[in-house]
Write a protein that binds this DNA or RNA. Structure first.
Lengths: 195, 195
DNA sequence: TTGATCGGACCGACCGGTCGTCTTATCATA
DNA sequence: TATGATAAGACGACCGGTCGGTCCGATCAA
């Protein structure tokens, strides 16, 4: 599963450290030390710290965020029940997958005005999530009405924002449970829209 | 209003730079250069970078976030209309006050695991906002019912999370309007709870 | 033998922070 | 009104250490 090569160790330790202290707050020396790899080896595998960052971002998305969209809810046929199950699933696993923060959000805050390349990667990955969520919400019949109702895209944006924001608050208050609580409340909103 | 002393210039430029590049990504030399102040003077006014950070945090809260809670809505007598006006007010001014990000959220992400002092300051200021919001929601009769309804505190937490998260997404997508859009959608939720 | 992998000394620039010195405003005393 | 003591403010060279990144020789499997 995780091969434990020098390269994979560098990525893994970089992910942990950057989640804890941000991109700028994490040094290459520190990553090398944690991965028990020399600096020469580091620059054999990555030609810059930024390139490692992009690689870590990719790994984070496909190993942590993508699985979220492949939860058990995908097998539910009724689109309304599927949408509700998705939110419930997110609530259930939230404490596990976001206990240390979210790398997309962290990189967005840290690097949006510093590295265009990172910003674009973060943006496109958030958009991918948003599109998938909007599709599920739309299939559930959400956001079809006139003026006063949200579009599926707005609901998806609200959902992701609530999650990302609650991750920030969880860090600030040192209280992981906040994430699940906020997701649960977003679920109440969706239930109101359905009924 | 803003005195333009060396000290105030240091705080102002530090705020701008730290919003743009985060705490770790901003150096003391850089702040001194932007404020046209020598390094000796910097350490005459602040005995460390962290102390400047705490000062900037304080200034940011009282000059940017506290005014949000003193908007025109405070003069509305009907508690329901007041709650709705608060959300609308937040939506209106969101593009202005959060165009460059939110220092509370940024510091939470950057420093929560590095500096206990900063984390506590961020936490207590988020809590202050949350309590005030919860009070307004509670007065509007929100969250009094049984099991299936959110408490005023949960709604306030959801509101702040949605705002903080949308600020992160706005940075990621380089699109400030996202913040207002998310706040508007939270307003729809509150309207549903009222009716 | 060759190319991937690894090791770590080394680089110039920059980090947060110190220090001694100079200038300027304040103010009691003569 | 002139004087001298005091202190706040300003300055930038300087400190040891660390930054991201380079370089080249050693090691190892094919």
């Amino acid at each position: 599963m995780s091969p434990d090569t020098s390269r994979s160790r560098l990525i893994r330790e970089a992910k942990t450290l950057m989640l804890a202290k941000g991109y700028s707050g994490t040094t290459v020396d520190e990553i090398c030390r944690a991965a028990a790899v020399s600096k020469g080896s580091f620059y054999h595998f990555f030609h810059s710290k930024e390139q490692l960052g992009l690689t870590v971002l990719d790994e984070y998305f496909s190993s942590t965020l993508q699985p979220l969209m492949n939860g058990p809810f995908v097998e539910i046929d009724d689109p309304i029940q599927r949408a509700l199950a998705l939110i419930e699933y997110a609530e259930t696993i939230s404490a596990d997958i976001w206990a240390e923060g979210c790398l997309l959000g962290s990189f967005a805050v840290d690097l949006a005005e510093t590295s265009t390349k990172v910003r674009q990667q973060v943006s496109s990955r958030f958009l991918r999530l948003e599109r998938e969520l909007a599709q599920i919400f739309k299939a559930a019949g959400l956001g079809k009405a006139g003026d006063a109702t949200a579009t599926p895209e707005e609901l998806a944006g609200h959902f992701i924002a609530a999650i990302e924001g609650s991750i920030v608050l969880a860090r600030a208050h040192n209280d992981t449970k906040r994430i699940a609580r906020t997701i649960r409340d977003f679920g109440r909103y969706i239930k109101l829209l359905i009924s």
